[in-house]
Design a protein around this nucleic acid. Structure first.
Lengths: 383, 383
DNA sequence: TTGTACGCGTTATCAA
DNA sequence: TTGATAACGCGTACAA
């Protein structure tokens, strides 16, 4: 008597199938071997019927399908197929933040859309992952059956995440982050683009600007960023550099997140002291910029007459009408698609090149000629 | 010895790559057996070191870990583990629509958030799936290695999707849809809630209302819904029933999607003919309602004086200020969490109960006493 | 066109 | 606490 429940493993399958049939699917699920046996063909033939990788006679196929039907067999078990083929059809998308937070960001939403488009033809789906798992449990980069991974703006844990996928030998693409030269990177000309906005302001007579930055590192609390602070988040750093190319001494306040609310809160701080009102705020996202516009309204400032505001991203900010932000329009969907294409290429054994997309400057009605300094309260502070 | 296709991606990476190099390029990845051999223990012991399911002496564990390190072994292959355990740690989330569209909907976003929270302790991740795969390829319910599935508002293909998961024997939970008595269902008291809004309007003197409905079936084109049209989308049907409980003859226009834009477009149609202006529009979502408010502004109508508008969902509609929609607030995050809990229960072999959540009526400033009929253009059309 | 035989990498079970 | 063994269900050379 063998240790398992059935007399013999070979027969085991047959018995189980019969039992399953007899007992109305009470026992274990039918396998492809059961189907093959029922159809009077070999397992490999049955396999081929389902995969379609080899021609099968119509009659054989029909018999197999009928057998499957009668056994309640619903096709190859993806787990087994996955072990065999080495592919799971799953692309992990790693976010730095809380999943819900990620989808609050219109840019990421659109990017995901492009990404979904691009991996679909690959037969792959998107698995949502967080890079730092608070609970210590939960699907993660280390344990999920991934064919590839896309890291999105994961500047904080980036290195850690990378080493994980690296040792697992999983192809990886990074969006908006620096992962070293061997990892394809999809990003923007952040610095150049942001410089355009700054130049635009300077050409309007602004001789300084305050930067409302994205968080400069993980778990950042809103506040001023002292000069010399190392900025871990690539996007924030690059965009700031773009500003500094034009306004070298621009002060920087970093918000806690990219949202209208955070922009509003930050805006209140920026505009708290009438004696120190800036003439221009360069926000690193449209949502932040929208918040600043709101804050300006609250403070009784007219945008753009008293205060110019620029954004970044070029999304439609609902409810900002009649304002239309002066901003840098980034091709978010294309970024997602490019990431998907890169994944596809790598899964295909080809090399994937890094791609840098270009933003388009779009002038809205939130920037205007710098106000004449009526209060005299603000002497030149930079630039 | 299968050549690893991603060797070139890995060459210049960290330790693992160096070791791969040491052992001769193209060598296959180390397995747990390799590690065990290197450590001088049996494969099962090595396995136990990684899974932690059985006590292992500190010394043995150290040896195994060291061996793993030296071999660049990054832990058990999830695919193989999955085949063996029958669990993949993946919960599929099936959307009816384009993925991007799903995340444009704030309610779904919040729901996903709750769902993510609830499945995390399970050690599971969320796989984004579409129920009708345009390409015919792509990860789908049929081929993805799922432990469970959550169907979200998939009224169109619902039955089909269900039969797939059913024959696969995958536990499934349905949010906002009817899947039969054996499938746990998470939904809202749509009809009762919507009836409240209608009653509210009637108590304000409105004797009819136009319904701006969600799409009534997949691929719906915006337009009037003739009476007697079968409404496939459960949510749309139930909410409409709620209206009809109060305004039996209410006309119905169904939008193409739930968004401000679609609401605006629909609103223009609804308000096109001044002679047939309704006094109240009952929108089936806040986004649609917001669009209607915009359309009313365009048409020169004052909300709520000339036109009352109600929404559904209770989300914050950005930029609708100073309006605050009269609406039904649904507990979206709780719905997601409940679905996650149901999944957890079923995976645990327990039964999961269906849950019906209750919406809270919230009166905003978009509804008011019905206008006196100055134009005389609209005789009572309903009751 | 079909069948045989084997391996994919892991873990559960049981015995030592 | 450790080790031997047997599946898990499939895909695919290769042979027929």
């Amino acid at each position: 008597m063998l240790p398992n429940r059935f007399e013999n493993c070979r027969i085991d399958s047959t018995d189980a199938a019969i039992l399953a049939y007899d007992r109305g699917m009470g026992a274990r699920r039918a396998t492809i071997s059961d189907v093959a046996r029922e159809a009077g063909v070999s397992p490999s033939t049955a396999s081929v019927v389902f995969s379609g990788k080899t021609p099968v006679s119509a009659e054989t196929r029909a018999r197999v399908l009928a057998a499957a039907e009668s056994l309640g067999y619903s096709g190859p078990d993806p787990r087994a197929a996955s072990l065999r083929t080495g592919r799971s059809g799953i692309v992990g998308v790693v976010f730095e933040e809380h999943l819900g937070a990620a989808f609050l960001d219109p840019v990421k939403t659109v990017m995901m859309d492009g990404l979904a488009d691009a991996v679909a033809p690959l037969g792959a789906g998107l698995l949502l992952l967080r890079d730092h798992d608070p609970a210590g449990v939960g699907a993660s980069l280390t344990t999920a059956p991934l064919d590839a991974a896309v890291l999105i703006g994961c500047s904080g844990m980036l290195r850690e995440s990378l080493s994980v996928v690296h040792t697992r030998g999983i192809p990886v693409v990074v969006i908006e982050g620096d992962a070293g030269s061997d990892v394809p990177r999809i990003d923007l000309d952040n610095r150049e683009a942001q410089r355009q906005a700054a130049s635009h302001l300077r050409s309007l007579g602004h001789d300084d600007a305050v930067v409302l930055s994205l968080p400069v590192h993980t778990d950042w609390k809103p506040g001023w960023v002292p000069e010399g602070t190392p900025i871990e988040v690539d996007v924030a750093r690059d965009r700031l550099d773009g500003v500094r190319d034009v306004f070298p001494r621009a002060r920087v306040y970093a918000a806690g997140a990219s949202s209208i609310d955070e922009g509003l809160k930050a805006g209140r701080v920026l505009l708290a002291d009438p004696a120190a009102w800036p003439t221009a705020v360069i926000a690193q996202s449209d949502l932040l910029a929208a918040g600043v516009v709101r804050a300006a309204e609250e403070a009784g400032l007219d945008v753009p007459r008293d205060l110019s505001v620029t954004g970044f991203d070029g999304i439609e900010v609902d409810g900002l009408a009649p304002y239309e932000l002066t901003t840098l329009v980034q091709p978010a969907a294309d970024k997602g698609r490019a990431a998907g294409a890169a994944v596809a290429a790598m899964l295909d054994g080809r090399d994937a090149a890094s791609i840098r997309f270009t933003c388009a400057f779009r002038e809205g009605n939130t920037t205007a000629v710098a106000p004449v300094m009526a209060t005299g309260g603000r002497a030149a502070s930079g630039g």
